[in-house]
Design a protein around this nucleic acid. Structure first.
Lengths: 339, 339
DNA sequence: TATTTATTCGCAATCGGTTGCATGGATACT
DNA sequence: AGTATCCATGCAACCGATTGCGAATAAATA
């Protein structure tokens, strides 16, 4: 049968008050260890399980952290989530994960739902589309910890976990230049998002440093999707420039480009050198191996988790570190090497 | 300021009872549309947000579905989760996702936590290790819908979403045989799990059909991890058999095997043919392209979600379909083709 | 023994919605 | 006009745990 045991049942059975039962179960100091023992033993015997609804209602917290990501089925994102989940779980928090599918609207809906669900904190990686941020106001009003990771937006008192995308973009581009490229195409994602904008800036900075000029046809903005290969080919066709290097803002798209090129008989790296971003497993598998930027997803997730948790526990010492910058690493493989 | 508006505040402001406010907000039929209008408008004006804790406590449901998976950062699993999340979200349910990291203990803990969190349903893909199932008893006692997907265990009244792993294993193996292999190694995962056991059975069935004999050295049980390549090579060494075909129970491991072999100068498919499982993106990227079994993750997730939702909504018609069998598809690529 | 000081524990309010039942008033019917 | 019917709303209990404050008992001190 359904065993709906409440603290009242236990109280009756033991001839004590529900208050005492509650305190015993929570190991409150003002209860004698004798009574505690009795309560705990009896509770276990009858299979008592706390009713979180009631507990939550009382102290107005849910031990739950909300997460909104663009989509969870990417290598990078699922790795980050894995890291977040691990930390959250280790600290007794549950994770409610929702996807925005790159839509600002969905993101707003998710933010609202999670707010109403009473999450104790919210972690967000922004959608491509998002340009207004009022859906986070409710959180800030109630001072519910809010954190952005990867695709971020700066707010005061709101930690941010990122890598130095500008520097990474610079590193990738500089590497291509050093390998002899002087007409480099940059394939980026939505420039409204910091990650892509910063990488683009890094790209331009590298060009400037080496006295190369940047022109509009050197930039291709896409969804970075595996089947954006056609868009890429199309771009090659209309911009009549002859590129000798490509810096792509993620590996998935880099692979799409490589495949398009290889299919056309273009030799990589001899004719065109390529660098991707993310260090997805495919980057190491594809032939030629793809040079890329390693981007520590699991670590980012763990840090994000730790940051939020310490906010929740009121450790103010983290406050100072509003922005955590993770190290990236340029991984040089065949796809970009001068032969 | 923190705007903690309750229905009582609204009731006071409008000189009506909280009951009426509650009913208005829930569009209860016995409230005049005039009052409803007043309430809704005023609620929006003052920024009222329902307190789910209280609501949950009242009707004893959370609009939340729990999910336990071995780990969420695999292509297949994150795809399934994406499907589940989509359906759940479309129907107003939140998803609490947790990982067992292949540990039975962690799985039990997660099950307990989710139970106490008051999830309305639980969806599970089992850990490698799991051999006892008492952690699901609490759910069954309270008749909280429970569903298994992919890595499943049969319980009565408990839906199950799988592909026909036996048939898939058979298909893969038969294909290898038809390509001329007659000494086929099977690299599998933990045989306690249905998916791997069934694929193994399918493998043996195919051997039987073609009069090939199965011997112990033809089987290698691993964690199917990308860096299990050494284990694989080790096995090749000790079992002195000369394999001409390999059926691997997932693509990640298949890729690990291929790389080990290619590094040793073994020609694929000329000397050894390989078939994997999952149709991960890497299978199409690696050279030679990996033949594999396509396994519809997103669809599985959506079906799992739909099944649970209809249970929750009390549509009994699904009851009949306790086991949903998804179609798989053998995808033949270079790695297994007779030249 | 009387009084102070801890210890343990219970009372009762509280968290914020939900809902069965009762009530008062409006409308309909004979 | 008198009675039956309906509609809209309010009353109050309830969901189950938490917690400030006070009381009762036990232990310590004078």
């Amino acid at each position: 049968m359904a065993n709906k045991i409440t603290i009242y049942d236990i109280a009756d059975a033991l001839n004590i008050s529900p208050a005492t039962v509650s305190r015993s179960l929570n190991d409150h100091p003002s209860i004698s260890s004798k009574t505690k023992e009795r309560v705990v033993v009896h509770a276990k015997k009858v299979g008592y399980r706390i009713n979180k609804f009631a507990a939550n209602l009382s102290h107005q917290k849910s031990n739950t952290i909300g997460v909104i990501v663009p989509k969870l089925n990417s290598y990078f994102m699922s790795t980050v989530l894995s890291g977040i989940e691990k930390i959250a779980n280790d600290h007794g928090y549950n994770l409610i994960i929702s996807q925005s599918f790159e839509s600002e609207n969905k993101e707003k809906l998710n933010a609202k739902t999670l707010f109403e669900s009473g999450v104790d904190a919210l972690m967000v990686s922004l959608a491509f589309e998002t340009i207004t941020y009022d859906h986070f106001e409710a959180y800030r009003e109630q001072s519910i910890p809010l954190l952005f990771f990867d695709r971020v937006q700066q707010f005061k008192n709101c930690p941010t976990i990122v890598i130095d995308n500008l520097q990474a973009g610079f590193d990738a581009t500089e590497h291509l230049i050093q390998q002899g490229c002087n007409n480099i195409l940059h394939v980026c994602g939505n420039l409204k998002r910091n990650v892509y904008l910063d990488r683009f800036e890094g790209y331009k900075k590298a060009l400037r440093k080496y006295g190369l000029k940047y022109e509009r046809p050197n930039l291709l903005e896409t969804n970075l999707d595996l089947n954006d290969g056609k868009v890429f080919l199309e771009h090659l066709k209309i911009s009549k420039k002859k590129f000798d290097g490509i810096f792509v803002s993620n590996d998935t798209m880099a692979v799409a480009c490589m495949r398009s090129l290889l299919k056309r008989g273009v030799k990589i790296p001899e004719e065109i050198k390529i660098v991707g971003f993310n260090n997805d497993p495919i980057s190491e598998i594809i032939s030629p191996n793809l040079s890329t930027i390693d981007y520590p997803g699991f670590k980012m997730g763990k840090l994000a988790g730790q940051s939020i948790i310490s906010h929740l526990k009121g450790n103010i010492n983290i406050q100072s570190a509003e922005t955590i910058l993770l190290n990236h690493q340029l991984i040089i493989r065949e796809s970009s090497l001068k032969k």
